[in-house]
Structure formats: structure tokens, C-alpha cells
Simulated assay, not measured.
Amino acid sequence: MLCKEFSAHVRKYLWGGHFWSGSYFAGSVGGAPLTVLKQYIEQQKRPV
């Protein structure tokens, strides 16, 4: 929706058409045990 409405302004803030970079993530785990979090991270796809 933002891209449609403000495409000229928003374009300079995009990485490959997205508002975020595939190399960075910040989030909450909601109290999940560290073992579960570690397993989740290890199963993520890595950039080629």
C-alpha cells in the first residue's frame, strides 16, 4: 500500500523491493527456551 501511494518517496528506502534487509532481524521470542531459539536459527536458510 505504501509503495503504491508513495512510490517515488519510498523507493530510496527499499532493499530489493522490501523495507528490510535479509541479513538482519530483530524480534521477540516470547519466553521460548534458548534451545528452541537456537534450533530455529540454525534451521534458517543462509544467503548464497
Rank of each mutant, 00 (worst) to 15 (best):
Q43T: 07
E5G: 11
L37Q: 07
F25Q: 01
S7N: 12
A8E: 10
G27N: 05
R11T: 04
W20N: 01
Q44L: 14
A8W: 03
L34T: 10
L2A: 04
H9N: 03
R46C: 03
E5H: 15
V36T: 15
R11G: 01
V48Y: 02
Q44K: 09
I41S: 00
A8L: 06
P33V: 14
G27F: 04
H18N: 11
L37W: 10
E42K: 04
S28Q: 13
Y40R: 09
K45Q: 14
S7R: 14
S7D: 12
H18D: 09
F19G: 08
V10S: 10
H18F: 13
S23Q: 11
V29A: 03
L2H: 03
Q39R: 15
K4R: 14
G16Q: 09
K45A: 15
F25C: 08
V36K: 14
K38A: 13
A8R: 08
K45S: 08
T35R: 15
I41W: 04
A26Y: 08
A8G: 08
Q43M: 08
I41R: 08
G31A: 05
G22Y: 01
K4N: 10
V36D: 15
S7M: 04
V36F: 10
S28M: 07
G31H: 01
H18C: 10
L14D: 03
F19A: 13
L37A: 09
V10H: 07
K12E: 13
E5C: 11
M1P: 12
R46L: 13
K38C: 10
Y24Q: 06
A8Q: 13
F6I: 11
Q44Y: 02
S23M: 09
E5I: 14
G31E: 04
S28L: 13
C3P: 02
E42W: 01
I41Y: 03
H9Y: 08
G22I: 00
S7H: 12
Q43F: 00
W20F: 07
E42S: 06
P33A: 15
S7T: 05
Y40W: 13
K4Y: 10
Q43C: 05
R46V: 06
K38Q: 14
V10R: 10
S23E: 13
S28H: 12
A32P: 00
G16E: 13
Y24P: 00
T35C: 07
V48F: 01
V29M: 05
I41C: 08
P33W: 15
C3M: 12
S23T: 12
S28E: 12
S28R: 11
Q44T: 09
S23A: 13
Q43R: 11
G30I: 00
K45T: 08
Y24S: 05
F6K: 14
L37F: 11
F25V: 08
V48T: 05
G22Q: 01
W15D: 07
K4C: 02
E5Y: 15
L34S: 14
G27S: 11
R11E: 12
S23H: 14
K4F: 06
C3L: 07
Q39T: 14
S21D: 08
H18I: 02
A32N: 02
I41M: 09
G22R: 02
I41L: 13
T35G: 06
